[in-house]
Structure formats: C-alpha cells, structure tokens
Computed example of a mutant assay.
Amino acid sequence: MRPERQPSPFPWDEVLHLLLGRLRWSPDAVWRATPREVAAALGGPAPGRSALSSAELDALMSAFPD
C-alpha cells in the first residue's frame, strides 16, 4: 500500500514576491485580488489563447505608450 501523498503548501513567499516585487501591485491590490486574477497574472495566457506575437505587442505598445 502506498502512503498518501500530501499536497504541497501554498508558495506564499514566491507569489508575494512576484505580485509585489515584479508586477508592482500594491498590497491592497494583492489582498483584494481573486484567486482567478492572481492565476491570470502569474500564469500567462488564458486557456485556448496563445501568447501575443511580436506584431501584436508592437501594435499595443504603439497604441498605448507610457
């Protein structure tokens, strides 16, 4: 009989580092975000959607310079 596999703990340190440090979310934004919003911010494109092409990224950067 195999021992039951325990789920790993949620990686709070890594997630907070990415949200607060890399993405520069405010602490208020981090704690108000839904799990779906956090997953979208950390996980890349939505299921069924490919990443932006270089041309699409260039068009967005031209349309919304900052």
Rank of each mutant, 00 (worst) to 15 (best):
A41Y: 03
W31K: 12
G44I: 09
R22S: 07
P3W: 05
S53N: 05
L57M: 06
F10Y: 15
G21H: 05
E37M: 04
L60Q: 10
A41P: 04
E56A: 14
A55Y: 00
Q6L: 15
S53C: 08
S62G: 11
A59W: 06
S54N: 10
G21Q: 09
R5F: 10
S62R: 09
R24A: 11
L57P: 04
E56T: 00
P27W: 14
L57C: 07
L16F: 14
D28M: 14
L16K: 08
S8L: 15
E37D: 11
A46M: 06
T34G: 08
P65I: 04
P3E: 02
F10W: 07
Q6W: 03
P11M: 00
A39S: 15
L19A: 14
A33G: 05
L16S: 04
Q6E: 11
A63I: 09
F10S: 03
A39K: 09
L18S: 15
F10N: 10
T34D: 11
E14T: 08
R5D: 12
S53A: 13
P9H: 02
G43Q: 12
W12S: 01
S50I: 00
L60A: 11
S50V: 00
M1R: 11
E37P: 00
D28S: 15
V30G: 01
W25G: 00
P65S: 01
P45Q: 01
D58L: 13
A46S: 13
S26K: 13
P45H: 01
V38P: 02
S62M: 07
D28L: 13
P45A: 08
G21K: 10
A29K: 09
L57H: 02
V15Y: 10
R24C: 09
R22L: 13
M1V: 10
R32G: 07
L20M: 11
W31T: 08
M61C: 12
R49T: 05
A46I: 06
D13K: 10
W31I: 13
A46F: 00
